[in-house]
Design a protein around this nucleic acid. Structure first.
Lengths: 224, 224
DNA sequence: GGCAAGCCATGACTTAAATCAAACACCGCC
DNA sequence: GGCGGTGTTTGATTTAAGTCATGGCTTGCC
């Protein structure tokens, strides 16, 4: 894939006039990364932002003692690191590949200049940022107003909604799922066991079957 | 104050050409609200957004059982509810006055149209949204990676940084501060008492004196 | 085949913080 | 001045979830 094809493969750039797409393509760079590669760190200087071409990326924060909290997971076609383009000039969190991946890197200043000339793109970008805000508000809400089993149930239902059957594979190692849900491996393990005991799910390794979706939904809606 | 003066009193609109400022002024409306008035609720339809003229506003989420979590507190000159302008068409959280307040309401569609014609404003808006994202990322981080005393210490230091002496008044009832920090009154009360016992602060009602800022800073930096 | 590494499950224990309950302090107001 | 409401403190108790420690399972690899 060359950068022009890459730009065109990204949903966000749909509708961009050819001339501008080519301009962007000419200044952006395709990078490849092995599994577990760190693309950038919180507070490091940002000269641009990224789009995932292949693979997956996790955006996270860590505590000095090694605990981490995963804020987002992005797959092909999604942008990340764009906050730094508009404010502060540094990244607000860390980005690391979950598997071998490739990305498109787009320099900050040229992109800003383009937004200044393309009101539609600018509005799209505001929509993207607003959507991110919504998802973070929900996260804060979940973390403070819900218990862990409730978040686990939500997560399972979320996974389910992007599958076609009631049986599917967990998309991440359980330790990573725990970090995504704001908890730790052991706690997640115990909660999943409880779900099995209560007949809500079936579990064979990474394969999971939802047996009682209504029950899970009730749990997901519970709050303190 | 009329709407034209109101528009000009809002930092965000600095640099807006007179003609456009007047246009905005002609479509926006000044509203006044008693203390504890609910301006909008989570998921309610949004036809525009607000700027605080006088008073203060809290932006928060609640659980069915009545617990609340305060996401932001905004004072004069600050915008709120703007997320709904760009995405979804509903507000992501509730807004309620903390005291008697007045606001400027700006309709969604006209504002969007204006942004399409004013690239500088658009970039400013992206900066605003990006800043909000940063603050929420920090909140998530605090909530999952730090203990409550650490958040309390941070809050005291934050208040301190916007004052000139080491003695100042708490800006909110303690119950509200607790909700802002993602905890409850009783816990906050106990933590403040501990701080007093440890000689970190002095406390007389709503008046607080920081005695050991370095100690507070250490606490604030602590993490799990 | 067997060994090591990562991943996961489970048990025992600790702990931070929420809940429940009661009393107190302060303030405005009739 | 006393009364009521709101806000605050304090104590006793419970509970969710984290920590520590161990062992087992799987998977890949020499």
């Amino acid at each position: 894939m060359n950068t022009a094809e890459a730009i065109r493969s990204i949903r966000f750039f749909n509708g961009l006039p050819d001339e501008l797409a080519d301009k962007l393509a000419s200044i952006s760079v395709i990078k490849t990364h092995p599994k577990d590669a760190l693309l950038f760190e919180s507070d490091s200087e940002a000269n641009g932002f990224y789009a995932v071409l292949t693979g997956r990326m996790k955006i996270f924060r860590t505590s000095p003692s090694g605990k981490e909290h995963i804020l987002h997971i992005f797959g092909p076609g999604e942008l990340f690191g764009e906050v730094a383009v508009f404010q502060g000039g540094t990244f607000p969190a860390n980005a690391q590949t979950l598997e071998e991946s490739s990305t498109l890197f787009i320099p900050r200043s040229d992109f800003r200049a383009m937004l200044g000339r393309e009101p539609d793109m600018a509005l799209k970008m505001m929509g993207l940022l607003a959507g991110r805000l919504r998802s973070l508000v929900n996260k804060v809400d979940d973390l403070t107003l819900k218990e862990t089993p409730s978040r686990v149930a939500s997560y399972l239902l979320l996974l389910h909604s992007s599958q076609n059957g009631d049986t599917f594979q967990l998309d991440l190692p359980k330790g990573q799922i725990a970090f995504y849900l704001g908890t730790i491996q052991e706690t997640l393990s115990r909660i999943l066991k409880r779900f099995v005991d209560e007949g809500l799910i079936e579990l064979r390794g990474k394969e999971i079957t939802l047996l009682d979706k209504a029950g899970l939904q009730d749990l997901a809606d519970e709050s303190r």
